[in-house]
Nucleic acid binder design. Sequence first.
DNA 1: AACTATTGTCGCAACCCTGTAACATTGGGG
DNA 2: CCCCAATGTTACAGGGTTGCGACAATAGTT
Lengths: 241, 241
Amino acid sequence: MPTETETPRKGKHLHAAKLLLVEDDPALSELLEYRFTNEGYQVRTTPDGDEALLLATEDVPDLVILDWMIEGTSGIEVCRRLRRDKQTAHVPIIMLTAREAEDDRVRGLDTGADDYLTKPFSPRELLARVAAVMRRIRPALAGESIEVGDITLDPVAHKVTRRGRTLQLGPTEYRLLKFFMESPGRVFSRGQLLDGVWGTESEIELRTVDVHIRRLRKAIEIEGAKDPVRTVRSAGYSLEA
Amino acid sequence: MPTETETPRKGKHLHAAKLLLVEDDPALSELLEYRFTNEGYQVRTTPDGDEALLLATEDVPDLVILDWMIEGTSGIEVCRRLRRDKQTAHVPIIMLTAREAEDDRVRGLDTGADDYLTKPFSPRELLARVAAVMRRIRPALAGESIEVGDITLDPVAHKVTRRGRTLQLGPTEYRLLKFFMESPGRVFSRGQLLDGVWGTESEIELRTVDVHIRRLRKAIEIEGAKDPVRTVRSAGYSLEA
DNA sequence: AACTATTGTCGCAACCCTGTAACATTGGGG
DNA sequence: CCCCAATGTTACAGGGTTGCGACAATAGTT
């Protein structure tokens, strides 16, 4: 039995929403991790506040689920520090508060939590809240299809259609288009596109973006439809509605 | 070739959904057992917490219905232990709590129950909740056959047909196809497929999925019909509607 | 025990994708 | 109208991903 090759499978879903779960009850955290993973989220879990901060800065999550009562740095402190760090300041936070802790709830929201859930809650309810936040923040991460102009992108089926016709695009073109569609109309510089689509650590020629823009344009080309990709001279590109 | 009679192994290959009902009120348990059996579920009943744990590990059920107030080990303890055991950690649990037992409800959900019902409840309501969980966990367990495109999968008869013709597929191909058919159109990464079809703790080479995809393709191949298995480069596979 | 079905891995070839360079074209300012 | 910078377009080599046949190990059957 070759039980060797340690294939990192958990983080393989590269473009799934990243959750950070800070919860020190093993039973609950395990259950939630299972449920969220099952829903297609990419979850990291820690029972410890300090470690949570580390994980959060190390790889910024899309959403933090934060228990009020945790070991190490307290929930409220974690919340504050997340808000203070520029990197994580904008990351939505859902707080899990103790039963009658009205004060906590208040302070939690004061501290910058986006939403809160009072224990006990049903996992289903938390799932729903998370989905709601995702829908608000970035629709594609919630598994909802995005629509910009006459183009529709279904992230779950990994499919793109334009006026009913299914388009055929390669991996990079797909990611590029999705990135554009998440912020319709917004102009991105080549550098921003490299960061957002290729990843922060890419050592790629800026001009390469041009080529992929070209490929994307060709891929979404349809008889009698205008090219929605706009070139903004000396600034970058954008996707028009 | 056709594996008709399967030895009771993990419960994943059985025909009907297996329920474990832990309830010490004879009248209620008898009623529920009758109703569920009538609905096609395979029910085992015990009034005792310890025995429930035994039964659960002995033959892992698909869903546990757990009364809060039972003899032997208490409901919450049963809940915890089920969660602790890797085998049963992910089995959904529906708790039945007494009316005024708010605290119980609290701890019950803390402990990882998926849902709860407050006594008194109508059997119909419980039926509905169970069905909902089943639909979420594994649609095929709800009993109805699934239909995607021209392929029909009957989980009860353990048979797959395409355009009237019966297909012959091996165990793994069957599970793979069923997994796909439960989420038509959705793209799964190789890792997700391994988790969903092979099980969470399998140490299997990612590329192995390719081979089984190929075997599945070959198995469902029919003259004049297009291959419904779509390859999504650098993302995974999906089953087209 | 012999046999068959099934399964997980490899290796190779085919194919797709990608980054880069090189050249063509465009646009705006003087 | 000319020039230069920015962008469009094409070609291509190299790398990565997938399809597919083969094979050994295992499990189940007769």
